[in-house]
């Protein structure tokens, strides 16, 4: 009986493995994000965020999308620079956590400034890349306003669940694009 169906079982098993390999590999071929500084007369006034991919056959880069981030406003800043639309959502500087390392019983804050009002999603991951927190901040409210946003991180953030000592990673996402990322240590 075992001998009779031996080849059939082999075929089914290898087919299953091949399916999982294909499913995994196709998600590995996403584009790469690159940030270029934009300056005029030696003054930095923004960043261009490119999502690109390369094709191995002709050794060229193909841009998938781009966004523009403006540092401040007033003289020297571009009003509009299509296709680098000044209204695109971006961060002014990098998001930072204060204090870091974090003692959750004392609390901490993630601070960042948006270039425009926008809906922003904050996601936090643990050291195995498991998502432990996700929150959507509406445009114009704390977390989604074109000002310096300070999002509290404390025991309540995680529903008073036990959060292990370790490093945690956060992403700020707007319009399905990562606009900022950072990390912090939770200490005992």
């Amino acid at each position: 009986m075992v001998k009779k169906y031996g080849k059939y079982r082999k075929f089914m098993f290898i087919s299953c493995i091949a399916f999982f390999c294909f499913y995994s590999i196709q998600t590995l071929s996403a584009g790469t994000l690159s940030i270029a500084k934009v300056s005029f007369n030696g003054v930095n006034f923004g960043e261009a965020l490119f999502d690109w991919e390369s094709a191995s056959d002709d050794q060229k880069l193909y841009f998938l999308s781009h966004k523009y981030k403006v540092f401040g406003s007033g003289a020297g800043s571009p009003v509009s620079s299509d296709p680098f639309t000044a209204q695109s959502v971006g961060l002014v500087g990098n998001p930072l956590v204060y204090p870091n390392p974090v003692r959750l019983s004392d609390g901490s804050e993630i601070g960042y400034e948006l270039s425009t009002n926008s809906e922003v999603t904050l996601k936090i991951y643990d050291m195995r890349a498991a998502e432990i927190y996700s929150e959507v901040f509406e445009s114009g409210t704390l977390g989604g306003s074109a000002a310096y946003n300070k999002i509290p991180i404390n025991e309540e953030t995680f529903g008073f669940a036990e959060v292990k000592t370790g490093v945690y990673f956060f992403l700020l996402i707007s319009e399905n694009e990562v606009i900022g990322k950072g990390k912090f240590v939770v200490r005992p």
Binding site: G93, E109, Y148, V167, G182, K183
Partner: peptide, 21 residues
Amino acid sequence: ESAVNGLISTTENENSGRFEE
């Protein structure tokens, strides 16, 4: 071992209220 590099210790700017590296 498990290791993570590039963590940022911060201060708070008393005037602007912004966090700084």
